[in-house]
Amino acid sequence: MSGIPLTWYLIVAAALFAIGLYGVLARRNAVAILMAVELMLNAVNINLIAFWRYLTPDRPIGLAWALFVFTVAAAEAAVGLALVISIYRQRDSVIAEEMDILKY
């Protein structure tokens, strides 16, 4: 192996995950929240690929899983953007805080 320890990849993934987490909690724009969720999923992918390469290089479990995560992330983005568009058509805004019809 090329000398870069596994930990480095995990740190990058954890940092990416934390940035995504911050984005979901702090951003107001629904599209930005979607992007932040995608960051979190990409962090998972880095984790999976790194674990596969370092722990089970002979069995492609992590690789297969990462492929599924890509696919699901793409489907999730499609559904999410469709919902954003249908909201935008109704109120010309994608700001999460303005979605306040439903409350008690």
Partner: peptide, 12 residues
């Protein structure tokens, strides 16, 4: 608007 807003919140 209620349906789409519910869907968006559920999705996020």
């Amino acid at each position: 608007p209620r349906s789409t807003e519910g869907g968006m919140k559920y999705f996020v």
